[in-house]
Design a binder for these strands. Structure first.
Length: 597
RNA sequence: UGGGGAGUCGCCAAGUUGGUUAAGGCACUGGGUUUUGAUCCCAGCAUCCGAAGGUUCGAGUCCUUCCUCCUCAGCCA
């Protein structure tokens, strides 16, 4: 054997490479962990951290999670799982005006639904890894005073407008604020007055003191604490000053002993400030080395979808969809109702990878992932979505003229015989799919045609003997005769080979119910691209409500039960609108169809 | 046009310190199996890595110049 190539592990990406290198070099092996977040002294009294790495997923509780967040969730939780670490589920709730408990709950639901938990995690399975940035307000306040004491921050009296002008532009340096040289004592006093509610909202602001001429605008004395009298969902009315993301986030990471703080590309410019801040606080003894490090990856872009928070809000508030969990929406709540599955998202994130290149993922990749998972997990059932009648004229009737009924046996899963079979009743009158009959067949069509043979799946081979049309020329009923020796499962079933194989439901036994056929919400791959309004790219036919004829067993489906309706696609019993004994179904995704192309 | 990023097959994406035939997935195209025109199986699919120069025995990997795209001027995150 020649030198074999080392196989590249699935899902290899630049972040995993960094993590592996850090672990190998013991970059974080000296860290201590006190069991709860805290400053340097707090952790110094703790034990060596049993977690090899700590990552975090830090949503702001001001909206619903969407598919893009799923990428981040699988990345961060996945890294922690694969490298004996812990992923902190942290609410970044530093702006009370936009945040609420409702969002905390919906976000928690989504994370749980994707298969992750924050209770009893960690190497000893005894940690709760849900955190709130707002629980660190006291420490953040102390950090701010520390900055002031060391001459790294000052209180500015300029208005927001004045600050904007003084900040300069992308190509021109900014100018120092006239308040930049206030003494430490003065700054400390003013900042405490801010905290104590002695100043109006917006009248004063705490800024870091770095360099107004920096080519990186984020380093031109960024604001770090603002006055804002607002009720906070967690801290109530305790505070009237709140830290800015820029200031708060690095501190949150450090207090939680995060090793790898992974965010999206637009935060790259903030990394110098991240490092600057933590460096100053470490100098002051408030934090200990090694400090967390920030890494950035490209956010998800999906064709035929919009993922921006603003656009999603528009779609919901302007009633283009029925709500945040509308099955056409790319929210995780919507995807769940649509019938998408967590394992499908896992497969999807593995498949698309993680890099720093801006990219557009084709929506079909996501659909394929769902198909792949559902093909394996979903039991098969029969449903006629666009019914016309098929009458088997030579089928036996009783003395009173009523059709006889017989059992046919359909496997619940062709790949898993251990899942057994179920009975589907056959009788003289059946519902079949309108598109399975053609009076004058197109080229290559091998289903029901006049005088043609076709198999009734799991039943008999039948021969078409005629059909009826209504006044409008639409076919209403097809007539046929069955070949008694050809029943599936009997020795005679192979006596006649037919290519066509159509599904059916007995009229007398069918469960009639509403089925929603969903299609993509946007008709353009890049909604709103160019100078178009993305709302004009909405697909007017993104949902079709139909009344379908289903096999009787489907009547007992529970909400969120998923099935493959054979020859159609995957469907889920709607978790919201299904009643006991009266489920309605949503089409998750169709089967692939090489014929219709 | 200041700073920070990114450009490898239609769509993603591996390519450690340059080493000689540029992973893999999806899509696509053939063929096979199949009582889902599904699934599954097998085969094919970049002489080329944004462009042009250069260094080297050897470059996607190093150097130079250029091009394109993304991103930053909230008291949002």
């Amino acid at each position: 054997m020649s030198a074999e190539k080392t196989p590249i592990p699935l899902g290899s990406n630049f972040i995993r490479a960094i993590v592996e290198k850090d672990i190998e070099q013991g970059a974080y092996s000296t860290r201590k962990w006190a069991g709860t977040p805290g400053d340097a002294a707090h952790h110094a009294a703790g034990q060596p951290d049993p977690a090899k790495i700590r990552t975090r997923f830090p949503p702001e509780p001001n909206g619903y999670l969407h598919i893009g967040h799923a990428k981040s969730i699988f990345l961060n939780f996945g890294l922690a799982r694969d490298y004996a670490g812990v992923c902190h589920f942290r609410f970044d709730d530093t702006n009370p005006e936009k945040e609420s408990q409702e969002y905390v709950d919906s976000i928690s639901d989504a994370v749980k639904w994707l298969g992750f938990s924050w209770e009893n995690v960690g190497p000893e399975h005894n940690q709760n890894s849900m955190y709130f940035a707002s629980n660190y307000f006291d420490l953040m306040y102390r950090a701010a005073e520390s900055l002031i004491e060391n001459g790294h921050a000052y209180v500015d009296s300029q208005t927001a407008e004045e600050m904007r002008i003084m900040r300069g532009t992308l190509t021109e340096a900014g100018k120092n604020s006239p308040w930049r040289d206030r003494t430490v004592a003065e700054n400390l006093n003013l900042f405490r007055e801010m905290r104590d509610g002695k100043h109006a909202d917006g009248s004063l602001i705490l800024r870091s003191k770095i360099d107004m001429a920096s080519p990186n605008i984020n380093l031109r004395d960024p604001a770090i604490y603002r006055i804002k009298r607002a009720h906070h969902h967690n801290t109530g009315d305790k505070w009237c000053i709140y830290p800015m993301y820029t200031f708060a986030h690095p501190i949150e990471d450090a207090l939680e002993q995060i090793t790898h703080s992974i965010c999206t590309l637009e935060f790259e410019d903030q990394r110098p400030f991240y490092d600057w801040l933590l460096g100053r606080l470490a100098e002051a003894g408030m934090l200990a080395h090694p400090l967390p490090k920030q890494y950035e990856f490209a956010r998800l872009n999906l064709t035929y979808v919009v993922l921006s928070k603003r656009k999603l809000i528009d779609l919901v508030e302007d009633k283009h969809v029925s709500g945040w969990d509308d099955p056409r929406l790319p929210t995780l709540a919507g995807a769940r109702r649509r019938g998408y599955v967590a394992d499908g998202f896992k497969l999807f994130t593995d498949r698309i990878g993680v890099s720093k290149a801006d990219s557009w993922i084709e929506y079909t990749i996501l659909e394929d992932c769902m198909r792949e998972v559902l093909n394996e997990s979903a039991e098969r059932r029969i449903a006629v979505l666009d019914p016309i009648k098929l009458v088997i004229d030579n089928y036996a009737v009783d003395a009173d003229g009523k059709s006889q009924t017989e059992d046919c046996f359909a496997p619940n899963h062709p790949l898993k015989p251990e899942l057994g079979k179920r009975v589907v009743p056959l009788s003289r009158e059946l519902w079949i799919e309108r598109e399975d009959f053609m009076e004058t067949p197109s080229k290559g069509f091998f289903r029901l045609v006049p005088d043609g043979l076709v198999r009734l799946r799991y039943g008999y081979v039948v021969k078409c003997t005629g059909f009826e049309k209504d006044a409008a020329g639409k076919v209403t009923t097809v007539h046929c005769e069955y070949l008694p020796d050809t029943k599936s499962g009997t020795p005679g079933s192979d006596s006649i080979k037919v290519k066509g194989n159509i599904h059916w439901v007995s009229v007398a036994h069918a469960y009639e119910t509403e089925v929603r056929l969903y299609d993509r919400l946007f008709k353009e791959a890049h909604p709103g691209a160019g100078d178009r309004d993305y709302l004009n790219d909405i697909n007017p036919n993104s949902v079709t409500l139909i009344t379908a004829q289903l096999e009787p067993s489907l009547k007992d489906a529970n909400p969120e039960d998923r099935f493959q309706f054979e020859r159609h696609g995957y469907f889920v019993a709607d978790r919201k609108d299904s009643l006991v004994g009266k489920p309605v179904f949503n089409r998750t995704v169709t089967l692939r169809d090489a014929w219709q192309k």
